[in-house]
Amino acid sequence: MGNITGLGSNQYQNQYLANVQLDLSIAAYTKVPLSWHDYDYTPNFNKMYYIMEGEGYLKIGSQEYSPKPGELYILPAGVLQSYGTVSENTLGKYWCHFTSKLVDLQLFDLVNPSSYVVTVKDAKEMKGHFERLIDYAHRDDLTSGLRIRSILLEIISTFIELCDHTRFNMKTSSTFDKMSAVLQYIEDNASHHMTVEELAAIAHFQPNYFIHVFKNFTGLSPIQYINKHRLEKAVHLLTFTNLSISSIADSIGLELAYFSRMFKEHSGYAPSTYRELMLNPQTK
């Protein structure tokens, strides 16, 4: 299985990737014609090809490929590309076009795979992903957008897992640097009162713009994120330490009554009950 290393802190990688904005424009299966070709162009959208049959030619960036059945290709936005046929036995492929943004970056500016192709282990599963993607792309029901996002994430995740090495390049964006500093500040100051103005000043943003960027970055408002972080810290302390409930409330900067009420809303249990359940899981 592949692994992700990076210039950025591992603490935030999952959080960034969980908030990727995906937008599918088209999905289909095609047995390409002999006229299928284009050379040295740079699309502003991502493509994925899952090869089922035939032969052809791909060039992605500086890497040249002769696609084979069972291979899954990522063709990222902003990368120079060429493609074409090489014989009458043309490629048959599932394919899709989509955009993928994280704040002010494309996903594959941030997650840099060492190769643009992987060999799929479970061909039936991958074929099923693309068939369902095509099906939902032609629907207009309430959940089709959610299904499409889920399938795209599954295919992208499979690609990353099968890739030998993927680089998480967080420092390609100054916004990521600024927001990482804000998240680290929240981490270091969980026991103190923090204001939006204070956090915005760290990023050198106006408060209203900061709130917008922060929500795009984390999926939460600053206050929601701070409370979520505090509650996660409280869960750890309740589970792994003998600190009193009052001491835990102090350590995350909340008054005892407010902490108890918020914790129960979050978990369904009062802090003392939650601790007892963790110590005696058979009583759940």
Rank of each mutant, 00 (worst) to 15 (best):
S115W: 00
V117H: 09
V117S: 11
V117W: 02
V118D: 12
V118G: 09
T119Y: 05
T119N: 13
V120M: 03
D122V: 04
D122W: 04
D122M: 04
D122K: 05
D122R: 01
A123P: 09
E125R: 15
E125W: 12
M126V: 15
M126D: 03
M126P: 01
K127I: 14
G128C: 03
G128H: 08
G128K: 02
F130W: 12
E131N: 13
E131H: 08
R132M: 01
I134D: 06
I134Y: 10
D135T: 14
D135G: 01
D135M: 04
Y136N: 11
Y136L: 01
A137M: 10
A137I: 02
A137D: 13
H138P: 00
H138C: 06
R139P: 00
D140Q: 09
D141H: 06
D141C: 03
L142H: 11
L142C: 10
S144W: 12
S144F: 11
S144E: 14
S144C: 12
S144Q: 14
G145C: 06
G145R: 12
L146F: 10
R147S: 00
R147L: 06
R147H: 03
R147P: 00
I148R: 07
I148Y: 04
I148G: 05
R149Y: 01
R149L: 02
S150P: 02
S150K: 09
S150E: 12
S150T: 12
S150A: 10
S150D: 08
I151H: 03
L152P: 10
L152R: 09
L153G: 13
L153F: 09
L153P: 06
E154F: 05
E154H: 07
E154A: 13
I155D: 00
I156Y: 05
I156R: 05
S157A: 14
S157H: 09
S157V: 03
